[in-house]
Design a binder for these strands. Sequence first.
DNA 1: TTCTTTTGCAAGTCAAAACTTGCAAAAGAA
DNA 2: TTCTTTTGCAAGTTTTGACTTGCAAAAGAA
Lengths: 186, 186
Amino acid sequence: MPKVIHDEDIFEVTINALLAHGFAGAKTKEIAEAAGVSEVTLYRKYGSKAQLVAAAINYQLRPFEENNFRYTGDLAADLKRIIELYDRSTGRDIDLFPQIFSEMVRYPELKGTLAGPFSLISNFGKLITRYQSEGKLREQHPLHTVGALLGPLIINKMLRNADPDIPIPPIDLEAHIDQFIDGHKR
Amino acid sequence: MPKVIHDEDIFEVTINALLAHGFAGAKTKEIAEAAGVSEVTLYRKYGSKAQLVAAAINYQLRPFEENNFRYTGDLAADLKRIIELYDRSTGRDIDLFPQIFSEMVRYPELKGTLAGPFSLISNFGKLITRYQSEGKLREQHPLHTVGALLGPLIINKMLRNADPDIPIPPIDLEAHIDQFIDGHKR
DNA sequence: TTCTTTTGCAAGTCAAAACTTGCAAAAGAA
DNA sequence: TTCTTTTGCAAGTTTTGACTTGCAAAAGAA
């Protein structure tokens, strides 16, 4: 009974497993079950767990096209677009980004997967640089600026996820951006 | 030949292994070798890998006494003391904190270990709250404020560690604190 | 010296989880 | 219908890594 299998469904499940259990903790058997697919099928389609995860991450990063980091001249709008995309794309209360940059980095099998995320960050940095040279943002290493913008959001999600019992409210994005711009103009 | 074994040496090695490979990736065999101790000894002394890690984390958090989060009335000085302690205590270019709050959280065996870190964060929050009520910091959820202070530092370390080839300079702590205070006064 | 404690070493056990293989069944294409 | 492709199922193999056990050797205490 060759079922029609949609890669996207499998990728969704894979990402969820990744967020919930990490790379080592995401079992192919559980992914298969959750996706309603046999484990064998996973291996036949993707070859290995690492390749499956790589494909799933690429899929998840799909919404982040270069276009999203374009310069429009409106700093607040550009930042808001990116941040909201970022926030929405993770949806769940955890983040792929810290996971990629701290956990995934350790697995040589996933080396190739990192190019995408790095290029995103780099594109973001370029946008920042442009606003800096325009005088709309204080001069500093662009990735420091990116960190200042994303860091608080990431930590917030991290803490919220770490102990759901401690009620830490989510960060208000609009307010955060306004405050960021205010604190980073020169 | 009962060698004299210092727990601290083993804990150091364990923390390093943890930072380098994560909990799942830190092999007891490798920890034993790196510490110059037999694997059997580890199990005899600490019972299990989880208990060893728990002990090592507690050891690593030792410098953070409640006293470090005391209120002196000098906001800049208090923040600086904490941040520098934080920065120095990790020493290496990675951070235990994000690791604890994102990876360790997943291992039920380590549940008990989380109380310490959470209480640190909480103490920090209380200090923030006090400065807020004094009017020296803008009112917002104290853990948001903590995130705004630590987030950029953590992201910086994370990126620097993720790809040592991309030269991202470390953040200047003094400047960061000044800028933080400036951006968070009301 | 003698007893106790602590360690190392060698050689395991055990379980989990990634990955494989052969066969049968179903859907779609020709 | 017939052939090809894709899937599931059952039952593997293989590796790895946590954890154990028995025995001998060394240090310190009494």
